[in-house]
């Protein structure tokens, strides 16, 4: 568990700019990149600063990998989708206009890439069958938790699950989730409530049997 980074700590509210006004200030090349907001860095990158992109990459590599890792069953695929998202950011940089927070922009790209992947994978699997899912190495910590959590979350309705994940792991607020998923804020709130209630019940149902499952953690997830 030592080298496992909690997603929330990497993408905590403290790391975010306090307001859009702050992000509108110009990127100061003399100032360390770590002190600039995401939006400033992205604008600097769109104007040719690779240092700005390196800083953005450092900030979002782990959260983005976690985003895909929780949503697809194959770890290698999660890696590939993470790369694809950063490549998309690089290619779209010349057209970047600051109309929302950078992380909303980034997750919007990630969601689009994820949907495309799911569509293709489902189409392929319809005719060729599902590939066997890759289990995390047994030595890696948290396998049992992952198993139950993944199983419980998979039982949620698609949209409820997405809202819950965006809130809990990507730490997006209700308005950002609403913007990303093109839903009213009230709908986001009610669906999030429903998802949390359902998840709590699912986890409490699984709690008694978790001790039995721990005896064979190497089983495919």
């Amino acid at each position: 568990m030592d080298n496992v980074l909690p997603a929330v700590s990497l993408n905590s509210r403290a790391a975010r700019p306090n307001s859009m006004d702050q992000s509108r200030t110009e990127f100061d090349a003399a100032k360390p990149a770590a002190e600039s907001s995401d939006e400033q860095l992205m604008i600097a990158f769109s104007r040719g600063s690779n240092d700005a992109f390196t800083e953005l990459f450092t900030r979002y590599k782990q959260p983005l990998f976690g985003f895909f890792w929780r949503r697809v069953t194959d770890r290698a695929q999660a890696e590939e989708l993470t790369q694809e998202t950063f490549v998309a950011v690089i290619r779209a940089a010349p057209r970047y206009e600051q109309s929302a927070q950078f992380r909303t922009y980034l997750y919007a790209i990630a969601l689009k890439i994820l949907r495309a992947y799911r569509r293709k994978a489902a189409f392929r699997a319809t005719f060729m069958g599902l590939a066997s899912e890759h289990a995390e190495p047994a030595a890696e910590s948290g396998v049992v938790t992952q198993f139950f959590m993944r199983a419980a979350i998979r039982k949620l309705e698609d949209m409820d699950r997405e809202i819950l994940l965006l809130r809990e792991f990507e730490q997006l607020d209700y308005a950002e989730i609403a913007e990303l998923l093109k839903l009213p804020v009230n709908t986001v709130r009610s669906r999030l409530f429903r998802a949390r209630t359902a998840l709590r019940e699912l986890l409490s149902e699984n709690a008694p049997s978790r001790s039995r499952k721990t005896s064979r953690p190497e089983e495919d997830i």
């Binding site: 782990q62 983005l64 819950l164």
Partner: peptide, 14 residues
Amino acid sequence: SLREWSAPPAPKRI
């Protein structure tokens, strides 16, 4: 309890 479901570190390959 959700936060216990933490992601492994992103590989260097990315």
